[in-house]
């Protein structure tokens, strides 16, 4: 029997997201799998967006956490398929987003095989204000400070807030 210091999955699940530090990579659905193969801890992560600049930091944070817990052989692998979806954000993750003042995403648009229909109207997305709870909110910008967020404003309390957009 090998001398297991800690459960590598439990260690990996403590690592937080560099851009949303209130959430773990597991909450976000970015952490796809943790397994031990021939004495090596193999961790699978998937990017939220193709250009997500945080992937390198995530990889380094996972290596650091697992090395610190005594796992010397760690391999962090990128998994591209299936593509990440906001539906993978856990209920816990959604609650933590709201607590951090960021409106969690609604259900992701359905993924179909054929051509993607054109959306000429304003995005039909809605989000309740994470500060006062009002449903009366409007979009200010389709793009926010990171690729995964849009900017909205609450018409009731007048506060702007970020919204994780559905993909």
């Amino acid at each position: 029997m090998s001398a297991v210091i800690a459960d590598p999955r439990a260690v990996a699940e403590t690592v937080t997201d560099p851009e949303l530090p209130a959430l773990t990579l597991a909450d976000l659905g970015v952490l796809r799998d943790v397994r031990v193969h021939d004495g090596t801890v193999v961790v699978d992560i998937t990017p939220t967006y193709s250009g997500c600049p945080a992937m390198g930091v995530m990889r380094a944070d996972l290596l650091h956490a697992l090395h610190s817990a005594g796992f010397d052989d760690v391999e962090v692998r990128t998994v591209l398929s299936p593509a990440w979806s906001t539906d993978w954000i856990s209920d816990d993750g959604r609650r933590k987003l709201a607590e951090a003042g960021i409106a969690p995403p609604g259900p992701a648009p359905e993924r179909t095989a054929g051509p993607v229909p054109l959306q000429l109207g304003p995005p039909r997305r809605t989000a309740s204000c994470p500060l006062c709870g009002s449903a009366d909110t409007e979009q200010i910008s389709e793009f926010g400070a990171t690729a995964c967020k849009a900017l909205r404003r609450c018409r009731s309390c007048r506060e702007p807030f970020e919204h994780v957009k559905e993909i």
Binding site: D44, V57, H64
Partner: peptide, 25 residues
């Protein structure tokens, strides 16, 4: 960890010291 995670070429990839995007694929 960021600078040591990879070999000597780690400072490339747009100067971030980050991973190669297909690592492990």
């Amino acid at each position: 960890a960021l600078t040591n995670a990879h070999d000597d070429a780690g400072h490339w990839a747009f100067g971030t010291g980050f991973d190669e995007p297909l690592a492990g694929v």
